[in-house]
Simulated scan of single mutants.
Amino acid sequence: MKRVDRASMVVGVIWALCVAPSAFAAFVAPDLGDAAAYTLLAIPDSSDAPTLAVSSDSDVAGQLGVGPGGFYNKSGSGDVTGNVILASTATSLNTGSGNPGNIQTGDLTSAIADALAASNAISLAALDPPTASFASITSTDTITGINGVSLFAVGDLNLGGSDILTLQGAATDFFIFHVTGVLNMSGSSKIVTSGGLLPQNVLFHVPTTGTDIIVSASSEAVGTFLAPHRDFTLHGALVQGRVIANDIGVTSGGEFFAFPQQPEPQPQPEPVIPEPSTALLLGLGLLPLARRRS
């Protein structure tokens, strides 16, 4: 029998304890904190002040936010349904016939900080081996997650034509797409969920500077787009979800609407014990009498 060197055993144990666990990294769903209250949140990127523009017949449902030094521009016949929170140094201009929303001043400090913290946390988690890696996603495909949180490393996500990206998972699962390159959708392409996976449990994280994120034509998408250092344009398409980016534009009939509210669990009613009926009470009262007569 070959003798096992004690030093080799020690090295093997150290490797198993310190290195091997990273291959089985347990990812955690990101916490957007106060940023989760916004359907569209335009935030500063270094010295680049944020802009949020809603034009033509585009509609947005949900709360909007524009960070310090930013500009909110509402034009056209479309409607914004919800509050529009402007940082104290942000300004706005409304030149359209549609509803610009309930414009008010508020403090976005914590929302912006929470969004950046979530982005940093995902970037740190992405240093571990991902659930799966894709150099590019450019055609119809189905991606199935693991139980819990899946983190997918993606170079480019570029869908066009009639491409459909189906995300298969349970209601308790969470999908994170860590995209470092292009993120574009055009034509009638779609990103959809299946198997019970909730749209609010899908997040596309674009942590780097680069080309604008564009969702255009009649394409449709679900999920959160967290891209603090890029611009996002919705051009005539439809998104159920939220966007956190530097500059955000919604134009040419684009539609944004918030995630559906999940119903609060209702307490189970206590069982109702019926009162004894009069007939039953009379019957019980007459029973001894009937026995005595017999």
Rank of each mutant, 00 (worst) to 15 (best):
A7C: 08
V11Q: 13
G12T: 14
I14Y: 13
L17V: 15
C18T: 15
V19L: 15
V19M: 15
A26S: 14
V28R: 11
V28K: 12
G33A: 13
G33E: 11
T39G: 05
L40I: 01
L40E: 00
L41F: 01
A42C: 12
I43A: 06
S47V: 04
A49P: 11
S58V: 08
G62R: 06
G62Q: 06
Q63I: 14
P68L: 10
K74G: 01
S75A: 09
T81A: 14
N83Y: 05
I85W: 00
L86H: 05
S88M: 07
S88P: 04
T91G: 14
N99R: 08
N99P: 06
G101M: 00
I103C: 03
I103E: 01
A113I: 04
S123V: 08
L124T: 13
L124I: 10
A125S: 12
L127P: 02
L127I: 13
P129K: 13
T131K: 06
A132E: 11
A132R: 12
F134S: 10
D141K: 07
T142N: 13
N147W: 04
G148H: 06
G148R: 06
V149T: 15
L151N: 05
V154C: 10
G155L: 07
L157M: 12
I164R: 14
T166H: 11
A170K: 07
A170N: 09
A170I: 05
A171L: 11
T172S: 15
F174L: 07
F174G: 04
V179C: 09
V179W: 03
G181V: 11
G181S: 11
V182C: 07
L183S: 05
L183C: 05
I191M: 09
L197H: 00
L197I: 01
P199A: 02
P199D: 03
V202G: 04
F204K: 03
H205Y: 09
P207M: 13
I213C: 04
I214W: 00
I214R: 02
S216N: 07
S218L: 12
E220W: 01
T224Y: 09
T224N: 08
F225T: 05
H229D: 07
H229N: 13
F232W: 06
T233N: 09
V239N: 00
G241E: 01
A245Q: 01
V250A: 06
S252L: 15
S252R: 14
G253K: 09
G254E: 07
Q266D: 12
P271Y: 00
V272A: 02
P274V: 09
T278I: 14
L281Q: 12
L281D: 07
G283Y: 04
L284Q: 02
P288M: 12
